[in-house]
Design a protein around this nucleic acid. Structure first.
Lengths: 147, 147
DNA sequence: CACATTACTATCAAAATGCAAGTCGCTCGA
DNA sequence: TCGAGCGACTTGCATTTTGATAGTAATGTG
């Protein structure tokens, strides 16, 4: 779809989608969150065609989600690491994963655990101030010009 | 991309993307969450081509996110309403929107408010049990076969 | 030197997208 | 009853994007 239209839309969801609005990008970010940094890591993990991976990595770098960093001069080798915006995006993916586990979790499926304690983690989206789950709050959008 | 591969993958994020993994689907669900139900509502709101909208609505219905309901027999008219899975998905979108507002919120952008109190809502993804933000927790995935 | 590793490009067919225009069933107003 | 209009699409076709496969480039390793 046309990313340009979304980029400067007034809806935050649209803007978010402009940065990471396709499945490959999200899966790459998920992998990056699990510690992968290198081209071949992503390629083998995802089974993505290399030309597509090249393009996706480039758009994620341009969108400010990943940073490309040279880790070896000779031979020239680059790795891709999450920026702050990229790291901040991971909880959104985890919320998505939690939702999918709840509703479409039949059969073998992995689960999110605390790396230190091993405890299962169930992501939940709440209002930061009150801690109330968003599913309990009727919401609307306030447009920029409104009272 | 190839949805089939994702559908039965063991990663919850992949499964989630198989249900709602493209920008149009997410925007349709966002609109549905804002109360829109009819074909033309979606079409005008999103500026999406009608053939594409038809296809997206059909896949969302098949994925169990929307339910198609006849609201008039003569003339025959259908509307699309969120299923429980679809409603549950909205907080994920709101988390995405919150993330985008934080990192790419320059210029006019709308904000999420409580429909009753009018208070601004800042979505945050936490662990449901402890209330700790996921951004503070180092996480891994436990594969289905693991101890 | 042969081969492996890492990080890609190039080519080209197949699929998805997007625009414009048309269709179908029906209602309503003149 | 004729025509305009509405809601919800479908059809055709050009453009764009994707994906599979193969190849390239720089270097290190036995």
């Amino acid at each position: 779809m046309d990313i340009e239209k979304l980029s400067f839309g007034i809806c935050p969801v649209g803007r978010g989608l402009a940065r990471a609005g396709d499945a490959w990008s999200m899966l790459i970010l998920r992998d990056a969150g699990l510690g992968r940094t290198r081209f071949d890591d992503f390629q083998k993990s995802l089974g993505i065609a290399p030309n597509i991976l090249t393009r996706r990595l480039a758009t994620l770098v341009e969108a400010g989600m990943l940073e490309r960093r040279r880790y070896s001069e000779r031979p020239p080798r680059d790795e891709y690491v999450l920026t702050e915006a990229g790291r901040d995006y991971l909880p959104v993916l985890q919320a998505l994963g939690g939702w999918a586990r709840k509703h479409f979790g039949e059969g073998p499926i992995s689960e999110l655990v605390d790396a230190r304690s091993g405890r299962t983690i169930t992501p939940l989206v709440v209002d930061a101030e009150t801690g109330v789950p968003l599913s309990k709050i009727p919401v609307t959008l306030r447009q920029p010009g409104d009272a």
